[in-house]
Design a protein around this nucleic acid. Structure first.
Lengths: 225, 225
DNA sequence: TGATGTGAAGCGGTTCACAGCC
DNA sequence: GGCTGTGAACCGCTTCACATCA
């Protein structure tokens, strides 16, 4: 198929597939069908096939996918075959927590620098990562070959930080500030908005607990008390 | 309109709208049109109107929305008019960072307890929040009237923690573990998968930099070098 | 006149179902 | 026989465009 425009939903799922494959591989399985993956990890088999088909024909009809082979392909497609160097802007609680977040190191992301504007923090170390002055941003990014930025500053500073990041040539940004950011089209910005997530949970809790509506929908019949 | 099934995309946006309204209100504006909000915050005016219309007719034709009035409505709809009590399971880096995450306290979420299985951590305090033994989960949840759980444990423990949460009667869960969790229909589970987000960024970086394809699409013409 | 509320069209993603191949 | 790859149907969300009303 080899289509052009890959949606972000697809790339997110590729990451999931890779995770699933790792689990399957760890058990020594060498071949796996989309149906098997779907059942086991609560996915849809057609979707798996379609997602994969965007990038080539990796499967074998009548057999399935070769686990090791598919892992290699996905790793390459996701660009996880070479390391990324990450900087985190904002050496507050969240920033420092992310600095030695296990998930980063696990998948070929290396946190190379922290930045802050607070003189108190500059020069200190978090684990073995140094906190630099945000004023030195462009210089440090260049020197340390950083290609991913994480924004972990208060909302009101986020836009100006993003502009600094943009100017430095970094093309991938993860933002934790609950602010609506604007950025040029050639930069990938991914916002994780914890406030919105929380408030969405709160909405759910505020709903009148219609005990049976969901269960009824699932089982296909309407119960009434 | 007052429709039944509200999508999560809508509730997420309600949270955004409320945030925007707060900003507008802070400037002393008393009335605002969907068009104005849309332009200012890069939203779509029709979508704003449609989202709001799900919950009633809050606007006045020819005028717009009364800022203060709409804020009150949204606050109520999102269940932010009374406080939620949050527990965080996993007193590692991420868990402790979230404990005094500013965004929590800001919007009527109060972190009331931390849980961990590590004897070293149990009994210690993070800020003024105590770390409890996960074995006492049900008891503490009940006593402290906790209604939201945050899962910040390694992936392999996430499912069993979720089951504990489920049994305790908590109906809203935010999960940071990169694991595919299953839970009964009456519980709202929101997963924030940092690994997937990162890998999706990595995919973007791995793409051949087609300098002009996006710009071309935006401007409606194809440039070629 | 000016902005809402909303039916209808448009669009993108998911699922179905099956032809094609091992 | 079994499973992939994929056109077609389906579904839900977004956007448009306008009737409606202050």
């Amino acid at each position: 198929m080899k289509i052009e425009k890959i949606s972000e939903l697809t790339t997110n799922r590729l990451s999931i597939y890779l995770r699933c494959l790792n689990e399957v591989a760890a058990e020594g399985t060498s071949t796996v069908s989309s149906e098997h993956l779907a059942h086991r990890f609560h996915l849809n088999s057609a979707q798996i096939r379609k997602d994969l088909a965007c990038f080539g024909e990796f499967g074998v009809r009548g057999v399935g996918y070769y686990v090791e082979n598919l892992r290699e392909h996905l790793t390459k497609i996701l660009g996880l075959d070479n390391q990324h160097r990450v900087c985190i802007i904002g050496a507050g609680r969240l920033g420092t927590a992310l600095t030695d977040y296990y998930g980063f190191s696990q998948t070929n992301f290396k946190v190379a620098a922290l930045f802050d504007a607070d003189k108190e923090k500059i020069g200190k170390k978090v684990g073995d990562v140094e906190v630099f002055d945000i004023k030195d941003f462009a210089r440090v990014v260049k020197k340390d070959k950083i290609d991913v930025a994480v924004i972990a500053v208060p909302a009101e500073y986020a836009q100006s930080v993003l502009e600094k990041v943009s100017k430095s040539g970094i093309k991938a940004v993860m933002n934790f500030a609950p602010a609506p950011l604007r950025v040029s089209e050639d930069i990938k910005l991914k916002t994780i908005d914890l406030t919105t997530s929380l408030e969405s949970l709160s909405y759910f809790l505020a709903q009148p607990r219609n005990e049976n509506s969901k269960a009824a929908k699932a089982s296909g019949k309407v119960s009434r008390k």
